[in-house]
Amino acid sequence: MKTAVFWGCRILTSQYAYEMSVREVMPKLGVELADLPEALCCGDPVKSVNDFAATYLSARVMALAHALDAGQLLVPCNRCHFTISEAKRSIEGDKKVSEKVSGMLAEEKLEYNPNMRLWHVIDFLHGFVGLEKVKKAVKPWKGLRLASHVGCQIIRYSDLGRVDNAENPTKLDELIGAVGAETVDYAEKLDCCGAHLLLSHVDTAFSLAGAKLRSLRELGVDGLVVSCPDCGLMYDFKQKDAAATVGVKLEIPVVYYTQLLGLALGIDQEKLGLHLNQSPVDRLLMKISV
């Protein structure tokens, strides 16, 4: 089955490291990704302004994937994955919405396919590629203690059908385990990075990110693993701003899971965009002596 990929705005415009690492890792695991031909927003920020317009944008994303003749769509961003999932539900559960959307898509000769399967990087690797296949493909390390942060919108809310268990998600931890690292359970694991507040309350957004990083610092982990461009933005790019709100030096290496996996697959650091991370990833790299 052909797999299309929808990156979303955040990845395409700044979280290049995530994009690069996904592009590097997938072919090594036997998956070819087809890019959508156009840049497009999933509808997330539009949702607060006009729900239908957001649904339309999501539908257009899925329709563009369908036009590529893809049966499934990989969405590496948590927020996009959620917005598209809600749109899917709204289209499939409400005839009026579905008719309106289909009509608008038809004007561009596009078509909505309800069978389009959505994946996030986490369940794609864990379920579609398969945890065992990942394990076999990597050269695991030893003695690495990492914390995982799955983010909010790929696990909540369960009724929508999400990527992992809402209260005790384990897939990302298992994937981290596959590259030979131990994951640490911590009380704030399910807490939000705060990214959405960048649109309205910037200081609070940083405080939320800072609170979590401070706890992780106290736990003394070797790094934090994320799988969402928003979370990456907050914990990696904005770590200094986050630190300022909690008044401590944080200095926690933050990497995307696909970067970590790429290293374990023997891919060159630069190809994985590790030179773009703003947090002190060198410490982590030293620890695994790459």
């Binding site: 209260e167 359970d185 911590y186 009380a187 704030e188 399910l190 106290e218 736990l219």
Partner: peptide, 12 residues
């Protein structure tokens, strides 16, 4: 909303 286990094992 939820119950958390702190690093010292106690609940919060």
């Amino acid at each position: 909303s939820d119950i958390r286990r702190l690093a010292d094992g106690t609940l919060y």
